[in-house]
Amino acid sequence: MTEQIPDKPDGDKTFVRLDDVDRKILSLLQQDASLSLDQIADRVGASKTPVWNRIRKLREAGVIRRQVAILDPEALGLEACFFVLIRTSEHDKEWAARFLRALRERPEVVEAHRLAGDIDYILKVQVRNARAYDRFYQSLIGEVKIHNVTALLSMEEIKASSALPIAEASG
């Protein structure tokens, strides 16, 4: 059963210890979140009410953040995926707030990460084509001062998954 380990003094999130049934439930939901409660219960070998209670506790603990539909970008005409490497000479709070606001306002930014090392940020930008990327780029640099931008066009998606390796993480 799900067990929460208290917050660490440094402010890190609570670690949730999972048992085998929790892992099975989460694996099933990561594969197909549209499974019915009956289907999940059947596949994990438990009855409906205890499975529902486990799912509820996993939601409350923040393990399950949300359930979404994963769309095919090409089917929507969003055929160009760019990975954008950003270096900045600005590191103050005001700049960071403007930068984060600019990213959050742009739906074409589907992922953004702050990095350690020579590159400060990496963005995953999904757009129709190179012209659409250029419009995104021009808009972004018009709003926020950026020292250096490198855009890399993904030629082929080899692997994409939203599934986390829960067996290793919670063992």
Rank of each mutant, 00 (worst) to 15 (best):
Q138N: 13
D134Q: 15
I119G: 01
R128M: 11
K93Y: 07
I86D: 02
L71M: 10
Q67E: 14
F99L: 03
H91T: 08
A97I: 04
E143L: 14
D118A: 15
Q126C: 10
L123F: 12
D120W: 03
R101Y: 08
D72I: 09
S139G: 15
G142V: 11
A96M: 07
L115S: 08
Q126W: 07
Q126S: 10
R114M: 14
P107K: 13
Q138F: 06
F82T: 04
V84N: 07
R131S: 12
G77A: 06
A102Y: 09
V144S: 04
I86N: 00
P73C: 07
D120M: 03
F83L: 15
D134I: 08
V110Y: 01
H91I: 01
F136C: 05
Q67W: 05
L78K: 13
L76G: 03
A102S: 13
H91P: 00
R128N: 07
A132W: 00
A102W: 08
L76K: 09
V109G: 01
G117C: 09
H113G: 07
R104L: 05
Q138Y: 06
E143S: 15
K124L: 13
G142E: 03
I141M: 02
Y121L: 05
D134R: 15
V144M: 03
P73D: 06
Y137D: 14
R114E: 08
L71D: 05
A69W: 08
V68T: 12
A130G: 06
I122A: 14
A132Q: 09
F136N: 05
R87Y: 05
V144A: 04
R98H: 09
F136Y: 14
E90H: 11
F136W: 15
E74M: 10
E143G: 11
R128Y: 03
D72N: 15
A97W: 04
Y137G: 04
R128H: 07
F136R: 09
H91R: 12
E94H: 09
V109K: 03
F83N: 08
Q67L: 15
V125H: 05
S89D: 14
A80W: 03
A116H: 10
A96C: 01
G117T: 09
E79V: 08
S139K: 12
F99R: 02
R101Q: 13
I119A: 02
A116R: 09
R87A: 11
V109W: 06
P73N: 03
Q126T: 14
L103G: 07
L140I: 12
R106M: 12
E143P: 07
E105L: 13
A80M: 06
R114T: 09
K93V: 10
Y121K: 00
A132D: 15
R114C: 11
E94W: 04
H113V: 13
L76E: 08
G117R: 08
D72Y: 02
E90N: 08
